[in-house]
Design a protein around this nucleic acid. Sequence first.
DNA 1: TCTGCATATACAGTTTGCTGTATATTTAAA
DNA 2: TTTAAATATACAGCAAACTGTATATGCAGA
Lengths: 121, 121
Amino acid sequence: MELVQIYQCLCDATRLRIIHLLTHGPLCVCHFQEILDIPQVRVSQQLAYLRKHGMVEANRHANWMIYSLPSKRPAELEMNLKCLQDCAQTDKRFRGDLRKRKAVTTNSARVSAALKSSANL
Amino acid sequence: MELVQIYQCLCDATRLRIIHLLTHGPLCVCHFQEILDIPQVRVSQQLAYLRKHGMVEANRHANWMIYSLPSKRPAELEMNLKCLQDCAQTDKRFRGDLRKRKAVTTNSARVSAALKSSANL
DNA sequence: TCTGCATATACAGTTTGCTGTATATTTAAA
DNA sequence: TTTAAATATACAGCAAACTGTATATGCAGA
């Protein structure tokens, strides 16, 4: 993976929030929708972009598509994800996303089983 | 500085090489031109983009414009620059740029004085 | 097999960005 | 004050990306 492609994936606010959320574990589309508070189309479109660029992996569980970071990650991606996590810690928006994330994932019992079985972090 | 803006500055191959070069110290436009082997216009345009986004600072020394990273850098920028340096170490292209950089800066005695007086790294 | 839910894709409009050509600006020196 | 060197800007063409509307796909249950 080219370094510049990593930055291309991170250079849009929505994608950046998606990737940041994924550094804390897999999520399904409906979760992104709720956490980010944006229409389903936009979530799917950005996820398609990230998939196309090898930045995320998708696994279907019944009706839900569970997205996660690639299980095998080149060094430069790993470093940048770590850097992103560090930077996000002091940012209001990212912290808010994580708060919502916790609320959303603990409430949806049906999906959480699928999430667990997809966890590769 | 917003994190996403940092990634926007790094998401173009030319800009990425420019920023990487600057992590090793200030340079003037003609140096970029020679190291990157691209026309002067493109260098100036990308530098204008970076300046507009607060990613570089410019100082005139006689005919030359010396570009450098901002003297005061927020934490998230500092972290990402460090990460970039780490990632670049194993990349052929970036290593080649640094090799050229060394050759170019040691050869142009006239400009090197200006470079030294601008060094804030 | 029909229905509903979750998600994806097609398409179009608009914006942003990259590049090249031409021209302008700034500075030092003759 | 003219000239040349270094750099910047204006403009246009084209490609890429973001967004919304509409529609399609895949899956599970009745």
